[in-house]
């Protein structure tokens, strides 16, 4: 028996909107730790790791570890039917081939339930070791989204370079080239507007903008994004989910042949 009650249901709506274009089908894993997911895109270039910690739910009952295969597009369709202020409860019985999403309006005058068929998904989990990154950039998530969108109108790939001067995003395409440099800036009114760069080693890595643009679908989840880079390692783009957990995207770099 599984019953997870999330008062801020909009968080789950936003999570689905942020990952449904990158991944088609995924297993949601439920344990005493929380509600989590790890899934790769079909070409195994990018990976999404989601964690919603059990403490973040108003009610969290998960009698035994459960893995539920879901089509993310279908799940997003159902969650779209929940109001932004609705409380969402996820329910499943042991051995059942369905999951139920229950939506309660804040005033409890409308209660809906949507039952979705589960699916069997063969998915391999990758072991992702905790790594010390050469450079960690924290910046406003809307700024990062803007940069990825703007650069993708010029080129297909972005080179992200971190030096003492700041973080530089560069691209080249048929019509020309573009460079955007963001300097560390901590003298802002709101801490979330800051750009903070922690650098141990200079880093320069190249990534497909197609994927970084998928990641920025998570922008509504958090006002800041953290980009962790090490030479010759996948980049980690993390959006924290207030007091609950995170959505992390991993993307393998491109190399010159």
């Amino acid at each position: 028996m599984l019953e997870l009650r999330l008062v801020q249901g909009s968080l789950l709506k936003k999570v689905l909107e942020s990952i449904k274009e990158l991944v088609n089908d995924a297993n949601f894993d439920c344990s005493s730790t929380g509600f989590s997911l790890q899934a790769m895109d079909s070409s195994h270039v990018a990976l999404v790791a989601l964690l919603l910690r059990s403490e973040g739910f108003e009610h969290y009952r998960c009698d035994r570890n459960l893995s539920m295969g879901m089509n993310l597009n279908n799940m997003a369709k159902m969650l779209k039917c929940a109001g932004n202020d609705d409380i969402i409860t996820i329910k499943a019985d042991d051995g059942s081939d369905t999951v139920t999403f229950m939506f309660e309006s804040p005033t409890q005058d409308k209660i809906s339930d949507f039952e979705m068929k589960l699916m069997d998904i063969d998915s391999e989990h990758l072991g992702i070791p905790e790594a010390e990154y050469d450079a960690i950039v924290r910046m406003p998530s809307a700024e990062f989204a803007r940069i990825c969108k703007d650069l993708s109108s010029i080129g297909d790939t972005v080179v992200i370079s971190v030096t003492k001067e700041g973080v530089k995003f560069s691209t080249k395409g048929d019509i020309g080239a573009a460079n955007i440099v963001c300097r560390q800036n901590t003298t802002v009114d709101k801490p979330d507007d800051a750009t903070v760069i922690e650098m141990k080693e200079p880093v320069s890595l190249q990534f497909a903008l197609r994927y970084t643009n998928f990641f920025t679908k998570a922008t509504p989840l958090s006002s800041t994004v953290t980009i962790s880079l090490s030479n010759e390692l996948p980049v980690v783009v993390e959006y924290k989910i207030a007091e609950m957990g995170y959505v992390r995207f991993y993307l393998a770099p491109k190399i010159e042949e």
Binding site: L47, L126, G127, Q206, A208, P234, K254, I255
Partner: peptide, 14 residues
């Protein structure tokens, strides 16, 4: 020419 790497080059299956 650029080559897109895949994640299994960096992370092993669990």
């Amino acid at each position: 020419k650029q080559k897109q790497q895949v994640l299994s080059r960096f992370f092993a299956p669990k």
